[in-house]
Simulated assay, not measured.
Amino acid sequence: MMAREKVEIKKIDNASARRVTFTKRRRGLFKKAEELSVLCDADVAIVLFSSNDKLFTYSSSSMEEILERRSLHSKNLEMSNQPSLKLQLVEDTNYAKLSEEVAERTLQLRRLRGEELHGLSIEDLHELEKSLEAGLSRVVAKKGEVITNEIYHLQEKEVKLMEENDKLRLELLKMSNARKQIIFDYASGDDGESSESTNICNFAGTPQDYESSGTSLKLG
């Protein structure tokens, strides 16, 4: 079976063949539209003009109702798009204002650095000088405040260190006194033991003398 030859999509030059093709394709298009309406429960409307300006229409329901729905839908779309357009306009305006403000602030900063001073009048330069002097005064005041705070913190730290040193010195003094007391108590204990030993020895010699005395009495 031979494959069907594919028709090239381009304008048909022969007028008679073009009219025949138009009639066939129009009927096929209306048939497909009817099938779509039935299968999918859709409202379908087709408006078709031929090359000789002849009107052909198809509608699954009332053509007027479908066209009114289409017109109402277009109006709703336009109304829904209006807030977006307004919002976009506001955003564009705000962006332009912010860009202008950023450019102005950048120029002021550069001039405070001594850049881009061309075009300034004497009054402008005088105002710039006043701004620099005011800024310098604030910087100096802030610097003095920071230095004062650092000195205060250092003094507090010094007082704490001195208190800790005093506590350590007192602890060392207590330890030294306790050590001296231990040595003194130990030395006092040795002298007592020596005296007691001497007394014991003297007491041990007494019975011998007593016994010798008794012997001499008996012999006499």
Rank of each mutant, 00 (worst) to 15 (best):
H126M: 07
T57H: 00
E164H: 01
D92Q: 11
L85D: 06
L219Q: 03
E196I: 08
R25F: 03
I66T: 02
K174L: 12
V146R: 13
I9A: 15
G220S: 05
S194K: 14
V38A: 13
K11I: 14
S99D: 12
V140T: 13
A96I: 04
S61M: 04
I9P: 08
S188I: 06
S71V: 05
S80Y: 13
G192Y: 10
D43A: 09
D92T: 04
D92M: 09
S176C: 06
K160T: 07
G144T: 14
S50Y: 01
A96T: 11
Y210L: 11
N14I: 02
D191W: 03
T198D: 11
M162Y: 04
E193R: 09
R169K: 05
D13W: 00
A141N: 13
D41K: 14
H153S: 04
V140N: 09
E150D: 12
Q181I: 04
N81Q: 12
Q88F: 06
K10P: 05
E150A: 11
K31T: 08
N14E: 08
S195K: 07
D124C: 02
N81S: 12
S80L: 15
N76L: 15
R110V: 01
S51K: 15
Q82C: 02
H118Q: 12
L98V: 09
R19N: 14
N202R: 07
V47Q: 01
R25Y: 03
K218Q: 02
E64I: 01
E100W: 02
A15C: 00
E64L: 01
A96N: 12
E150L: 12
L36I: 13
K6Y: 02
H126F: 12
S80C: 11
R70W: 04
E104M: 14
G189R: 06
E100D: 11
I183F: 07
N165T: 07
S71Y: 03
I151H: 07
Y152P: 01
M1H: 03
K31C: 05
R19D: 15
T148K: 15
S60Q: 05
L67Y: 00
K160Q: 10
S131W: 00
S37L: 01
V102D: 06
S61H: 08
R169I: 05
A17H: 08
G28W: 06
S99H: 12
N14Y: 01
E68V: 12
I66K: 00
A141V: 08
E101S: 13
F49M: 08
H73L: 10
A204C: 02
N94F: 14
V38L: 13
E64C: 00
R110M: 10
E104V: 15
G135D: 07
L109K: 06
A45D: 03
G205E: 09
R25A: 06
L161I: 03
N177L: 15
E211A: 13
S213Y: 07
A45F: 04
F22W: 02
D124F: 00
L173D: 10
L219N: 04
A3F: 07
L77F: 08
N52Q: 09
N52L: 10
G144C: 12
I183A: 11
